[in-house]
Design a binder for these strands. Structure first.
Length: 953
RNA sequence: GCGGAUGUGGUGAAAUUGGUAGACACGCUAGACUUAGGAUCUAGUGCCGAGAGGUAUGCGGGUUCGAGUCCCUCCAUCCGCACCA
């Protein structure tokens, strides 16, 4: 029988589906294991070969864990709310639900062909009402909560209201910007609107005016990365900053726990650092500087600064406010009014991006005002400068040029004196930014080390009530509103402009039908187009018109998989307790500061509220690298002819060099003409032959511009292209889909080849050239079992050699998978089959085990062979993983370095095959060993089979 | 600038307590079989050298009996953040 993969794979796909082979049990005596993939957004382009990379890795692991006797939860679903479907709807009028449905069908079809062991009974879709009912329900819980810093957790808003009614807010310690104090009586006297507004300051989901990127032409808010140089990424329309009433999530409340929680999870340092960086914790203190009496109109004027270096407070030689700082106008003296106004105007004209891009130029302007140093009483000049950001800290800094490089640069530039407060440190060339050494010339801090001085300074500042120790976070609250149609509606209605929650009984609030998917003429979100009758439920004056952002539905989906059909709870406590954390999460690192942060936030919140018993969602995570495409680039000359790349390759290379210089140094008129001789055109990679030449006939029909194009071929009469590695994308014409490969080589080959490409975590270009090697492996495997259609497996006992090969492979597979590096394991199977072939091994004893080893990687082939060996169909998935026996590994004729207490003493050549125990005995019997042992017996002997003998004496 | 990662043949890459560097695969070369080959099989393939042999894991040092692996300096590439006080 030939290795007829198409028939085999079809057969087993059907078998698995019919028998629900991979359904996870909710109650099992087996230990549980939860393997999760980041669910995809079902885009119209379908899957390309990059998508399944992580899915294959996780599938191998899930299958391996089943062989190891675990009850494995390995689900899949779709993050199906999103912009592309909405955009398509705007263009064509087709409802996004229909587009989404079609795309999901396509995805499912593609996924099925690869033979994943997903438990499809548990599929979730974030855009289905059964699912977003719970997104809305969780939103309600967050809205109905506040963060109590006394208990350091979220609590029900009812507990806060009770406290207000009893004692007002004077004793309340909460994460909130609200600073006014009120008594219980005052609280009771407030109107409903006033109460609502105050509570809004405490709620973890709250309404507030936020600055957003508003694009009038598109009628929508854009994310920062959708804005390029003040223009929208799509369409190039102007974008302006607009203050809009938006829902936000008080993620800041969890900043500290989001940092400390990282220590409890097994993620890469890269991702952890990205999150830490994003949260941006800095410990320091706030200090108020009195503005000099003659400088300000109000005698109370104070400048509050945040500093991480209170120890350097005697080194302050000037202060800098952000140009937008509210105190600037008040303190600026008449003499400097015009200059300050000019500077502020110049700064406001620069976009945030421009300001960030232009960090080299030092700018600033003296205000004419002075502040009083709280300890030395010296007068300190107050400047404004756009290197100080209004949005961070207090928008003002105390500048210590001797200890901060930016302050140093600023002082040098404006000739401000620099005071040195560090003992024996030269600051004539640069600031001294190390946090060690001794403080000098600093009043009560003189002689202290930096560390001591920090404590002493904060103590003194607090004692004099000038400020207090404080921790700042860069993390900002997350805006939770989107002015889009295709997202979760809020379970919120307004009555007299006060937001109210919809009762649980009426959830979900389903998306109403609208006539168009665009904002209204007066800038309201698309949902404002819905007639009141189009809402399946509505109350009050109006419903909330915003929808939730993409990350809402993806922030708890891992919990919903545990109990996807529960109509009473988003997950039952029992099931959440059983399945618990995701044991292994596989997905891209691009979600480091988005999805992965928000999921942790929601998980901690749900933990605080007692719905789940763990506060980190993903115990271990692997980030698979991106698979890049190799774009094909053709060259069209100024004469409009298509040139073969090899003809002009050398010429272009030297021109590239020139071009690199041109960018900086040479003006446009000086660019040599030759540089503009060719233009690059990307060609659909399906039109490229293996020898990098273009299939001309197909090219001519591909795009009109090539229909009649004149060719300048190379000496072989071909037009070659240049390859460039890009992100795989439709627009670069470099997408490779798994479908063709499945068709041509089979899913098992595709699976193994993707694992064979290189380290899972690494970014790598897709190259199909090596796939035949993997395919050959499967064919070779087949020849171990079959010869001319006959099964040639025998019941003869296995040779010692074959057993060694088998156990070596067991060990390698085990090690690879337990260490989660999916790069070499395919090679192990190849080596195994190569060796067994050389050994002419047809022993059932060995081959049976090989089939089990193979099952995670090439499940269809494994099932087929398993059945051929006389087992019940479809049971290899639940077989027992073979047990490794180290004695089988020991090499014959191996030279063992023998070491004593880690010191290598001699080499022992052992001429015959031994078990580990026998190696030990043989070495001990050698005269050299006796010489080093001096007659004593070793305390311990460690034999690494085939490698080294270590003795502890 | 800060943080993270990576650097090994023509190519993708292995090397799992510091123990034969380049497994495995692609490609290439030669041969066999074949009407044919984008099929299969056999042999070879880091570099230098006819050979013996020498030499080799980005550069330069160090520790060690022994270093791709550990330590230090530097260089290059990629990713993330970036005037964060």
């Amino acid at each position: 029988m030939e290795y007829n993969f198409n028939d085999i794979e079809r057969k087993w796909r059907k078998h698995w589906a019919d028998h629900k082979t991979f359904a996870a049990e909710d109650n099992s005596t087996k230990p549980k294991y939860y393997v999760l993939d980041m669910f995809p957004y079902p885009s119209g382009a379908g899957l390309h070969v990059g998508h399944p990379l992580g899915y294959i890795a996780s599938d191998i692991y899930a299958r391996y864990k089943r062989l190891r006797g675990y009850n494995v939860l390995h689900p899949m679903g779709y993050d199906s709310f999103g912009l592309p479907a909405e955009q398509y709807a705007i263009q064509t009028g087709q409802h996004p639900a229909i587009t989404t449905e079609q795309n999901i069908a396509r995805y499912r079809d593609q996924l099925d062909k690869i033979g994943f062991s997903f438990d499809w009974e548990r599929e979730v879709r974030t855009s289905s009402p059964e699912y977003y009912k719970w997104t809305q329900w969780i939103f309600k819980q967050i809205f109905n909560s506040w963060y109590n810093t006394k208990t350091d957790k979220a609590e029900s808003i009812d507990s806060l209201i009770a406290e207000f009614e009893k004692n007002g807010n004077s004793e309340v310690k909460a994460v909130s910007e609200f600073t006014d104090l009120f008594t219980a009586d005052e609280w009771k006297a407030y109107s409903e609107k006033e109460k609502s507004d105050i509570l809004m300051e405490y709620r973890l989901a709250y309404l507030a005016d936020s600055w957003v990127n508003w694009c009038p032409a598109l009628g929508t808010v854009l994310a920062n990365d959708e804005v390029i140089n003040g223009l929208s990424e799509r369409g190039g329309h102007p974008v302006e900053q607009k203050l809009m009433r938006q829902w936000s999530m008080r993620i800041k409340a969890y900043a500290e726990r989001l940092i400390t929680g990282l220590d409890t999870v097994d993620w890469t340092d890269a991702i952890k650092d990205m999150q830490r960086n994003w949260i941006g914790k800095s410990v320091g203190c706030s200090v108020r500087f009195q503005v000099a009496f003659d400088s300000a109109q109000s005698p109370e004027a104070q400048i509050e600064v945040f500093t991480t270096r209170p120890d350097t407070i005697f080194g302050v030689s000037f202060m800098v406010l952000a140009p937008e700082h509210p105190l600037v106008d008040e303190i600026t003296t008449a003499e400097y009014k015009d200059a300050i106004e000019a500077y502020k105007t110049a700064a406001s004209l620069k976009s945030e991006r421009d300001r960030q891009a232009d960090v080299k130029n030092i700018t600033g302007q003296f205000t004419g005002a002075y502040a009083i140093h709280p300890f030395s009483g010296e007068k300190i000049p107050v400047w404004i400068g756009d290197y100080v950001l209004a949005s961070y800290g207090t928008g003002a800094v105390m500048a210590v040029p001797c200890g901060d490089q930016r302050d140093w640069d600023f002082a040098k530039h404006f000739n401000i004196p620099i005071k040195n407060i560090f003992e024996n440190v030269d600051i004539s060339e640069a600031a001294y930014t190390e946090k060690e050494g001794t403080i000098a010339d600093s009043g009560f801090l003189t002689g202290l080390s930096v560390k001591e001085a920090m404590k002493a300074a904060i103590a003194k500042i607090e004692e004099h009530q000038l400020g207090f120790g404080k921790t700042n976070y860069r993390l900002r609250d997350a805006i939770f509103s989107r002015q889009r149609y295709w997202g979760e509606p809020f379970p919120v209605y307004y009555k007299n402009d006060i937001p109210h929650l919809v009762d649980d009984a009426h959830l979900p609030i389903e998306l109403p039908e609208v006539d168009k998917y665009l904002p209204t003429e007066d800038g309201e979100p698309p949902l404002a187009r819905a007639e009141k009758s189009a809402w399946k439920y509505s109350e009050g004056d109006r419903m909330e018109y915003n929808t939730m952002p993409g990350w809402a539905g993806s922030s708890f989906y891992f919990l919903r998989y545990m109990d996807p059909h529960n109509t009473q709870e988003f997950v039952s406590k029992e099931k959440a307790d059983y399945w618990n954390q995701v044991d292994l999460y596989i997905g891209g690192s691009e979600h480091a500061t988005g999805h992965l942060l928000y999921s942790r936030f929601w998980c901690k919140f749900l933990f605080d509220m007692g719905y789940i018993s763990f506060d980190e969602p993903f115990k271990k995570m692997i980030n698979q690298g991106m698979i890049l495409g190799k774009s094909a680039i053709a060259y069209i000359g100024a004469d409009d002819k298509l040139y073969s790349y090899d003809l002009i390759e050398n010429q272009l290379k030297s021109e590239k060099e020139i071009a690199n210089h041109v960018a900086d140094k040479i003006t446009d008129t000086e660019i040599p003409n030759s540089i503009q001789t060719y233009r690059e055109v990307r060609i659909l990679i399906d039109l490229i032959n293996d020898d990098e030449s273009i299939k001309i006939d197909e090219l001519r029909t591909w795009q009109p511009q090539f229909e009649d194009i004149e060719l300048v071929p190379n000496e072989n009469g071909k037009i070659t292209v240049r390859r460039e590695v890009d992100k795989m994308s439709k627009r670069w014409f470099n997408v490779v889909t798994p479908d063709d490969l499945c068709e041509k080589y089979g899913a098992d080959t595709l699976r193994m080849y993707e694992m064979f490409l290189g380290p899972l975590e690494q970014t790598k270009p897709w190259d199909t050239k090596g796939i035949s090697g993997v395919h050959n492996f499967l064919r070779k495997l087949w020849r171990l079992f079959y010869n001319e259609g006959q099964l040639i497996v025998t019941n003869e006992p296995a040779s010692k050699e074959s057993l060694k090969t088998l156990h070596k492979t067991i060990k390698k597979v085990e090690d690879d998978l337990e260490r989660y590096s999916f790069n070499t394991n395919v090679s192990n199977m190849m080596i195994c089959v190569n060796e067994l072939t050389d050994q002419k091994c047809h022993s059932k004893e060995v081959l049976e085990q090989v089939v089990i080893l193979l099952a995670p990687y090439a499940p269809h082939a494994a099932e087929e062979l398993w059945e051929a060996l006389g087992h019940e169909a479809g049971t290899v998935s639940t077989a027992q993983f073979p047990t490794f026996n180290p004695d089988m590994l020991v090499e014959a004729n191996t030279v063992y370095p023998v070491s004593f207490n880690g010191k290598m003493r001699f080499n022992a050549e052992l001429p015959t095959t031994f078990s580990a125990k026998e190696v030990e005995e043989a070495v001990l019997a050698m005269p050299e060993a006796q010489k080093w042992l001096e007659g004593k017996a070793p305390k311990k002997v460690i034999v690494v089979p085939g490698k080294i003998v270590n003795m502890v004496v």
